[in-house]
Design a protein around this nucleic acid. Structure first.
Lengths: 193, 193
DNA sequence: GGGTGCATGTAATGGGTTACATGATTCT
DNA sequence: AGAATCATGTAACCCATTACATGCACCC
């Protein structure tokens, strides 16, 4: 019967609505918020944010208030309208789309035979470094955020998403160690022959 | 000194070169290979593959041989040229680019306060189901692939990338369980009040 | 008769990053 | 003196998915 699936995309727009559900903010502010809080699993660039905010304002989902400032461009502070909050809620209830995230390091390792053991080890070590650092950061944030935002009603949800980062980075570091041992074993075997 | 960073993109092209380093294949075959082996961390659609193979052929990195078939379109079997293999090796040595993978489920959970506990639980449960199934698949593949490709020189690398899937899905399932408990606790608290 | 697998491709559309462009203030 | 922070935005480009278009063979 011809069910047009309609794709329901526009996640960027909904991410912005979500950011504004926390507090009214400028485009710049949204960028900062995203980087500092959900930067490990989400990103938006200015090239997306500014045009999207305009569109949302035109559609009546957000409201713009302009603040004049000394020595700086005017600040456009956006806030959610009732309709905007409704649209956010509607979207939140929809099942989350899964996507295949591209992992270039794994791609290179998959074709690792075409390269050398040294190169493969380097890739894994770099990956390990990255995720070890990330893991430490998440642990630090797990302590600092409850202090800085004590009693904030969004806090429990923020901590949940952070905790996923903790779990994930631990798992990735463990995988790196296992894989590095395996690569060393391969190296030893090659030498023996 | 004007060091144009040049961005060195074209990962799709290099993924194709990598696929062809395993064996000569058609565009269709590459798609199948990618889905079955690295589908958990990489994807390429026909809309990318076919035009990219043409470009690679024009650049002399791959060679096309046409096989006629009965009742099917001609099959274009591509294989790596020496230059293609060189280009693949060169790319493999370059550090792997990190990317922020978008996780829509986490995004929704981050704004979870705007929604209901029920909805948030549903999201986490769905996520858990997905990754539990994935984990089982990876474990099954860890057994079947060494049998099916016993002695294959690429095998150790394939298993390494698979193992990351195993580690990751375990971690994600553990996080889901922890988070579901947390959400239940919040629900109980809400009822008590 | 209908679904799945093999096999090719293009065009429209949508998403997203990066580079460019500007400029005062404040911290080191 | 120079870097970082605040603050706006556009345009060019790259990348990627999806829908469309075609069609035989084989199995149930």
């Amino acid at each position: 019967m011809d069910q047009k699936k309609k794709r329901e995309s526009g996640t960027t727009a909904h991410a912005l609505l979500g950011a504004l559900s926390i507090a009214p903010m400028s485009g710049y502010g949204i960028r900062m918020l995203i980087q500092q809080s959900i930067g490990h699993f989400w990103n938006e660039s200015y090239g997306q944010i500014y045009p999207a905010l305009r569109r949302l304002a035109k559609e009546g989902l957000v409201e713009k208030r302009t603040e004049r400032q000394k020595g700086r461009p005017d600040k456009h502070v956006y806030s959610l309208t009732e309709r905007g909050r409704g649209e956010l809620r509607r979207w939140l209830e929809l099942p989350a789309a899964a996507s295949v995230p591209r992992n270039e390091m794994l791609l290179k390792l998959f074709f690792g035979r075409q390269s050398s053991l040294k190169v493969n080890q380097r890739h894994v070590r770099e990956y390990r470094k990255r995720h070890e650092a990330a893991g430490k950061l998440y642990l630090a944030m797990m302590k600092s955020i409850p202090r800085e935002h004590a009693g904030h009603p969004d806090l429990p949800y923020w901590l949940m998403t952070l905790r996923l980062g903790v779990h994930e980075s631990k798992a990735l570091v463990a995988w790196c160690d296992e894989t590095l041992r395996e690569l060393e074993k391969m190296e030893r075997k090659r030498r023996e022959k």
